[in-house]
């Protein structure tokens, strides 16, 4: 039951994008079309979950016993960067279809702060293993949900009359703000 609550809270209440501001660069960058957003979202779910598991294991079984907690940042980014490379090579070799679908998004993910952010939040909240897995999957799913909704709105924005100076990123940010406002409505659901 606690795990279900944790998942709901990570997807809706504390949405990683709209309430914690993580992953905004790809949010603004690739959300112009629905299909590319879907690709990015699936790639983030995949990499964020794997990266969280690896960083969590390394943190508790290597860094803590050796008292090396202070280089956490350096180790985490190295794990994420090499994991992304590895996933790319693996997919290219064994799953051509998946590689064609996700391939171009993978290099972008290394500098996606949502992936690194989820890994850091797992440690900050002192989650156990299963809590960590559920939190990672649902946070990344929250990212995907937000980016998909946003892309659908943005496709409409293209054909509407926006004042010249607000076009592009400016109107996109205001739209994201209004979306974030509506997501605040979920606040009462979980404490």
């Amino acid at each position: 039951m606690d795990l279900i609550l944790l998942a709901i809270s990570a997807i809706f209440v504390n949405n990683i994008l709209l309430a914690q501001y993580l992953g905004n660069c790809p949010f603004m960058g690739v959300s112009k079309k629905l299909s590319t957003s879907l690709g990015m979202g699936v790639a983030v779910i995949f990499v964020a979950t794997l990266a969280s598991i690896f960083t969590w294991l390394v943190y508790y079984y290597i860094l803590v016993p050796l008292e090396l907690k202070y280089i956490q940042t350096l180790i985490f980014i190295l794990i994420i960067a090499s994991l992304v490379q590895f996933v790319e090579i693996f997919l290219k070799r064994f799953s051509k279809g998946l590689y064609n679908a996700l391939g171009i998004y993978l290099p972008l993910i290394t500098t996606n702060c949502a992936v690194m952010g989820i890994a850091l939040l797992n440690i900050k909240h002192e989650f156990g293993f299963w809590e960590m897995v559920v939190f990672s999957i649902s946070s990344a799913a929250g990212f995907t949900l937000a980016i998909l909704l946003f892309a659908s709105i943005r496709e409409r924005l293209f054909i509407s009359h926006v004042p010249q100076f607000m076009r592009g990123s400016a109107i996109a940010l205001v739209t994201a703000g209004i979306m974030s406002l509506s997501f605040m409505g979920f606040c009462g659901m979980v404490n």
């Binding site: 309430a19 205001v174 605040m184």
Partner: peptide
């Protein structure tokens, strides 16, 4: 709160674009 951050940043960006256009610069979209 979170929504204020997005809207505030969006409006500042819009104002800067407007100023840039007024000065006759090419504004990045």
């Amino acid at each position: 709160k979170a929504p204020g951050a997005f809207i505030c940043l969006g409006l500042i960006l819009g104002l800067m674009n407007a100023y840039g256009r007024w000065r006759g610069e090419n504004v990045i979209q």
